[in-house]
Write a protein that binds this DNA or RNA. Structure first.
Lengths: 341, 341
DNA sequence: GTTATATGCTCCATCGATTGCGCATATGTT
DNA sequence: AACATATGCGCAATCGATGGAGCATATAAC
């Protein structure tokens, strides 16, 4: 069975079953009742297929029907829970709806993103979801020219509908939480510092706006130097903070878990122990609640985002609007008083 | 350009270029010099293709050449850095070698694993790499019957070559590290507890052997009740430890970051503060070094594993042996003495 | 007994790209 | 002038599956 150089085709099965290839084909793709094939022949063919280890040649099948069933997704990285969850849920949902999901990871590299998109278009994907793409419009334009639907997730574009988190509101809430906790636990009232992300990036700028709005609401001025959007890198966050040796209380709004790594590294290295530091992070990680000084995290609602994105698939009359999905804010308890234990 | 219901084909381009479809095809797939097509025609075709936004129909192309260029990979989850890195590096390496990587995440579900494998075989993948598959032999047997090569990564099987971490040695080293640190910092000499993983699982049992070997070497007996292989879940690890209220020093060997979450949750909730607890984890996470009590972690050498796996692709004369890849042990510094600061 | 209707299956063109073979025309050789 | 070789390209079969159209035979209706 495993010796055949060539794989079993419907023609082989047809010979064995003494039937025509079209009968075999219709049995195997489930249209045999519509095509009035007898149950007897159908069963013969199916058991032969089983026996011979037959599996359709998808390439041939897809060539003939003009549908690929492929759903493509581009994600920048797999190095945090957010994108990991997106990929997992996307695959599960796609499969549940009869699609073949193909997820590809493009390392935040605009050219790689575009190459991957082109590849997925070559495979005649039904729809391409660009997640956190650095240049979503370039991808949408290309997809458009090839008649492939595209949808933006996480970062918005102007040439396709976009499903994104409500960064502004959640950032404002998180800022409020950190300020409240600083007030309550340290008797100190800001302003906070903003660490991580890229200002050119839509999400970062929306979060910064929320951050500033909450300060404004409370009548707190934020010095320019407090905004440290150092990119998505633990090192850069740690370096940006390296010269910061707080003498008194301080608070930080951390943008993404990757920056959080840098902040926590800095924090744990503080000579004075950093007991008077409070921070919160716009992103979720299961180790977050265990980090000293962390007052809360924002978790983006991946399920809701994907649900909305899937609703858009196949729709053609789309206005290219942004769909905003609220986030969940997880406040953490004040740390157990270790020192007094 | 975006109005065409049908996508541009080589026949359309042939008409526009006043040439034959075969000439167009050879220009577009790079064989035109071998086929003695003039540079002049080639350039005309290429610019027309660009202009028309042409992209090959991979389905048709792959049907004709009997090569798919698809490299499939099955991973159980994207919820930790290990599998995330595997997926990322697999994709990058595959792309660099001219393959089209398709990674699919199967939620540790044996049936889903098998379905995904069947799907990839239908796509005529050149080779399927099963990572951490719960039932790798079932997949290998199926692939074998269809003439598709299969390779096991992370967990070994008997029907295909397997590239796995040297769990035994690394576990023994990690056990030694934890015991040493308990000795040095707490003046206590074990035995340690073993938390997380599944005993039926090859990796867990190899790690447990290394764990026991190191104890044996030091003449330390490990009570049966100290082995708590509660599965891959933070909750279960936390529950298993819930009744454990150490009065004196204690040490834990934690199997995987997912279990580590549970251990750390338990640890941070200890009434006495858990200052006399030391643990280490067989797995890597960037927040690890920042967790109090964590003396070190084992990082599996993803690059080396994938390099070896890629070397096996296309080889047919394979003995189905296991290739062992050494891990890296990262010892962490003793925590800065916060309390005395 | 003749005309509908149902049943069960086959024939064949088709999807788009690839490639062995071969036919012209151009250039070189003696 | 006659022949050899090189250049440039087209023809047509092929990969495997699909599905509209149609052909027998069987059963029902009148």
């Amino acid at each position: 069975m495993s010796k055949d150089a060539k794989r079993t085709t419907i023609y082989d099965l047809a010979k064995l079953a003494e039937a025509s290839p079209s009968a075999v084909s219709s049995v195997l793709n489930g249209t045999w009742e519509k095509r009035r094939i007898s149950r007897k022949l159908a069963e013969r063919v199916m058991s032969l297929a089983e026996e011979q280890g037959y599996s359709v040649n998808v390439q041939a099948s897809l060539l003939r029907r003009e549908r690929s069933n492929i759903l493509g997704m581009i994600v920048p990285k797999y190095d945090n829970r957010y994108f990991g969850k997106i990929a997992e849920e996307f695959e599960a949902t796609a499969r549940a709806r009869g699609f073949f999901p193909v997820v590809t990871c493009t390392q935040r590299d605009p050219d790689l993103e575009f190459e991957a998109a082109k590849e997925l278009v070559s495979y005649r994907a039904e729809c391409l979801i660009s997640t956190g793409a650095t240049d979503p419009d370039r991808i949408s334009a290309f997809c458009d020219a090839s008649g492939v639907q595209s949808i933006n997730l996480d970062l918005p574009g102007t040439l396709a509908p976009s499903v994104i988190s409500d960064n502004y509101s959640a950032a404002q809430e998180l800022t409020g939480l950190i300020l409240d906790r600083c007030e309550k636990e340290l008797g100190w009232s800001g302003p906070l510092r903003f660490v991580g992300g890229r200002l050119a990036d839509h999400n970062t700028s929306a979060r910064l706006e929320g951050f500033l709005a909450e300060h404004r609401k409370r009548g707190i001025a934020v010095p320019q130097s407090y905004i440290m959007a150092t990119g998505y890198s633990a090192e850069k966050a740690a370096i940006a903070l390296a010269d910061f040796h707080p003498e008194g209380p301080a608070g930080i709004f951390v943008n993404s878990t990757i920056s959080l790594e840098g902040v926590v590294r800095w924090h744990s290295g503080l000579a004075r122990g950093g007991d008077e530091i409070r921070y919160g992070c716009f992103d979720w990680d299961p180790f977050g609640p265990l980090l000293p000084g962390n007052v809360g995290m924002v978790e983006q609602d991946v399920s809701a985002m994907l649900t909305r994105a899937f609703e858009l698939i196949g729709k053609t009359d789309l206005s290219h609007e942004q769909v905003l999905i609220p986030c969940k804010l997880w406040p953490f308890q004040a740390p157990l008083a270790r020192r007094e234990g």
